[in-house]
Structure formats: C-alpha cells, structure tokens
Computed example of a mutant assay.
Amino acid sequence: PCRHCPYLADHRAHRQQVVEIEATLGGAEGELEAARHRFQREFRAYRAVLRDAGFLEEDRPTALGLLAASLYGESALLIADGIAAGTFAGLAPEELAATLVMLVAEDRGRDRPRPGRRHLPTARVVKSYRSLRSALLRLSSLEHEHGLETLRPLSMDFIGPAYRWASGEPLADIEPPAGADIGDVVKAMKNLYSVLRQMEQALHGHELRSLVSATRERVERDLIRRVA
C-alpha cells in the first residue's frame, strides 16, 4: 500500500471488511455443505424406515403408503398402520374416539411420575391401546436402527375425556386430567375432530368409513363445531 495515501486508513478498514466477509462466506459454505450431507443422510434414513415398515417398495408408495399419504400430521404412519391392521375395527364410536386421541393429543408434564396402572374405559380400548403401543415400538425400533427419533409416546391423559365427549357428556361435566385445564381438553377434542375428518375423506369405499363418520358426528358438537 501507498503509505503516503491520504485515504490509507479508509483503505485498510475496507480491506479488513473484505477479509471478514470472505471469512463469513467461507464459514457459511462449510455449514451449507454440512447441512447438505445431513439432509442426504436423513432422507436415506427416512426412506429406509418407510421401506422396512411397508410404506415403500422400490421407492414407490405401497397401498399402505398411499393411505398414509392421504393423512397428515405426526401420527399418519401409525393411523394408516392401525387401519391396515384392523386395530380400529369393531369399536363403538366412543371407543374409536378414545383410541385415536392417544395419537393426536399431547400430554402435559411428560416428566412427572406416571401411575403404574391406568384405567381405560373398555376392554376393546385396552386391546386397541396394546395394538398401537406394539406398532409404535416397532416403528420406533426401525427409526432407532437408522438414527432417527421422530415418534412421540402415546397420549394417555385424554382417553377418558374423549370417551365421555363422544358419549355425549356435557363439557362442564368432563374433568380435565391432572395438570391440564378445560382448554387442553377442547384442544385435544379439536385435534381428534381434525383427524376424524382426514380419515373420513381418505376412507371412501372402506368398511371403516361408517364408523369414522359416526364418531366424527359424535365429536362435532358444542365448541368443536365452532372452533374446528
């Protein structure tokens, strides 16, 4: 540099800015490259899980995969698997509501101690719970094999409220679970109503559709009709 330049200080400052910008860009390129490799690994892992679970075959969706694709949300795979496995067949509307809410509600205070034994409304709800738990463990195991962890535990807090709501009990008579309030109950019922509508649209021509429609009609009342 010309040491006698009257703008030497400005030039040095500009040069420092250039160096800093180049360093920032170099770091960003490294981060982008790392992100690209991470996304590739995750994509391959998701594809492997879907293939091993029967949702994909030769990179094309199977009938089970198409069913799952017609749903949306975190529990789409479990719901589709439950439909295919017959988990929901033979349930009464209030039992289907109690079963599906396990997949769409989110318990508060997951870290608090859980009771060792929970009372479920009917023997058929118990059977459905065991089937869903088995499917969840199977899919979670596949995810673990491929370095993924996306599935959350079944919700247990809103089984009773969903059963009573679909049985026609007034909202004022439904006691919220411990650590929750009536707003949480309404939110859980709203999520339940949403998934029932999805299933109703996805199951045209399916023998389960009449049960899903009947359950949706039971749930669609009071606040749920207005806020959903």
Rank of each mutant, 00 (worst) to 15 (best):
D107F: 03
H146G: 11
T122I: 00
E94G: 06
P176D: 01
V186M: 08
G90T: 05
L32P: 04
R152C: 06
L196K: 01
I159Y: 10
G109P: 04
V186P: 08
S141M: 07
M199D: 02
R38V: 13
K127P: 02
L32D: 03
E57M: 14
A178L: 11
V126E: 14
P6N: 00
T122Q: 01
F158C: 11
L56T: 04
G90P: 07
I21T: 15
L151T: 13
D10H: 06
I21H: 15
G160M: 03
A9L: 05
A97K: 06
F55P: 00
D184W: 05
D10Y: 08
H144E: 15
R112C: 03
P93E: 03
G147M: 12
E106T: 03
I174H: 08
R218A: 14
H14V: 10
P153K: 03
E143P: 01
C5M: 00
D222L: 06
G147E: 11
P115R: 00
L139Y: 14
L223C: 14
R152L: 02
E94C: 04
L148N: 06
A228R: 11
E175N: 08
A28C: 02
S213I: 11
P61Y: 13
Q40H: 14
L8K: 12
A23C: 11
Y163N: 04
H144P: 07
E20P: 09
V212P: 15
A228L: 15
T99L: 01
E57N: 15
L203E: 10
E33C: 01
T87K: 13
E29N: 08
V18H: 15
A76F: 08
D184E: 08
E20M: 10
E42I: 12
P153C: 09
M102E: 07
F39V: 15
R118L: 09
L211K: 07
E220N: 12
E29I: 10
I174T: 06
P61D: 14
L71R: 10
V101E: 01
H206Q: 12
Y193W: 10
P170C: 07
T87C: 11
L139D: 11
H11F: 11
G27V: 05
L56R: 07
G27W: 07
T24K: 12
G147Q: 12
G179N: 02
D222Q: 13
R108W: 00
G168L: 09
R164L: 14
H146I: 04
V185A: 05
I79G: 00
L67C: 08
L192T: 09
L203W: 10
R47L: 12
V185D: 01
A76E: 15
G116A: 05
P115S: 01
P61S: 12
Q16M: 10
P61E: 14
A63V: 13
E22P: 08
G30M: 09
L223G: 09
L8E: 02
Y46T: 12
A180W: 00
P93V: 07
G86D: 06
R41F: 11
R164G: 04
Y163G: 13
G86P: 13
L148E: 06
D111E: 01
Q40I: 09
L142V: 00
S128D: 15
Q198P: 08
K127H: 08
E31V: 07
R114C: 00
P61G: 12
V186H: 12
T122L: 05
G109F: 00
A85F: 02
S167K: 05
S75F: 03
K190R: 07
A13F: 04
A34D: 15
F55K: 03
F39N: 14
G116L: 00
A45V: 05
E33M: 06
